[in-house]
């Protein structure tokens, strides 16, 4: 139950967060050379009407990715649909017909892999942003914001690389691992992804927290509530 609330909280937070930047913080989506992860990659801010947050152009990817993620599915089916509320305690207290992922809309969960492919695009930009943040005002700096961006990119990579669909794509779909050099290589990959996948739930929560942390941090910077401690070279 708590899990479900946190996930909803995240969706709401991300929607609000990505919609409201302009009016409050002015035109720049960047603060001190940091870009909030919700806005990355920054798509043509100049071409959009001022009321339209560019985050919307990207946000559907991570949201879709997480919504169709096997782990989050488990979490919200249990929390919101009471299917099941808990594992088998005593008398089953309801009986009803049920179609779950065989019918619309949940049959769409099968598209998870498409979101996975797409999710790598913003992920690449997040790494880029993190690296770009090292260069500021013609000098080098390692700021707390930068560290947050790196941690965030790393956790998100862990999350994406531990995805069940990826596990299947890199090697899980094979029946014979030892048959030739290519399948042996894919077996190696599969083993790595499998190792990460064991902790997929952990990656899911950690990356969620890091996105929010980075976003909040950058916002606080933007409104000037805090400064950015940094090592400069």
């Amino acid at each position: 139950m708590a899990i479900g609330l946190v996930f909803t909280g995240f969706i709401i937070y991300s929607l609000i967060s990505s919609l409201f930047w302009l009016p409050e913080f002015g035109v720049a989506y960047e603060v001190e050379g940091y870009l909030s992860p919700f806005f990355s990659p920054l798509i043509a801010p100049g071409l959009l009407p001022p009321w339209f947050s560019p985050a919307i152009l990207v946000l559907w990817i991570p949201l879709g990715f997480r919504t169709t993620c096997y782990y989050y599915r488990k979490a919200y089916y249990r929390a919101f649909f009471f299917d099941p509320p808990a594992c088998a305690v005593g008398e089953p207290w309801f009986h009803r017909r049920y179609a779950m992922e065989r019918k619309f809309p949940f049959i769409l969960q099968n598209l998870h892999r498409l979101f996975l492919y797409l999710a790598f695009i913003p992920l690449a930009f997040l790494w880029l942003d993190a690296f770009l943040s090292l260069r500021h005002h013609d000098g080098w700096r390692i700021g707390l914001g930068g560290v947050l961006l790196f941690v965030n990119a790393a956790l998100l990579s862990g999350y994406s690389l531990s995805c069940h669909s990826l596990r299947h794509l890199v090697g899980g779909g094979l029946d014979c691992f030892s048959c030739d050099a290519r399948t042996r290589a894919r077996h190696g990959l599969w083993q790595r992804v499998t190792g990460l996948n064991r902790n997929h739930a952990m990656w899911a929560w950690a990356s969620l927290a890091s996105v929010i942390a980075a976003d909040v941090y950058i916002r606080l910077l933007a409104i000037g509530l805090i400064g950015d401690p940094a090592l400069r070279f």
């Binding site: 599915r73 488990k74 089916y77 249990r78 099941p84 179609a99 992922e101 049959i107």
Partner: peptide, 15 residues
């Protein structure tokens, strides 16, 4: 076999 009925909620794994 109706694999789509399973909504991966993992009670089976737990027991």
């Amino acid at each position: 076999a109706g694999a789509g009925y399973c909504n991966i909620t993992k009670c089976c794994t737990e027991v």
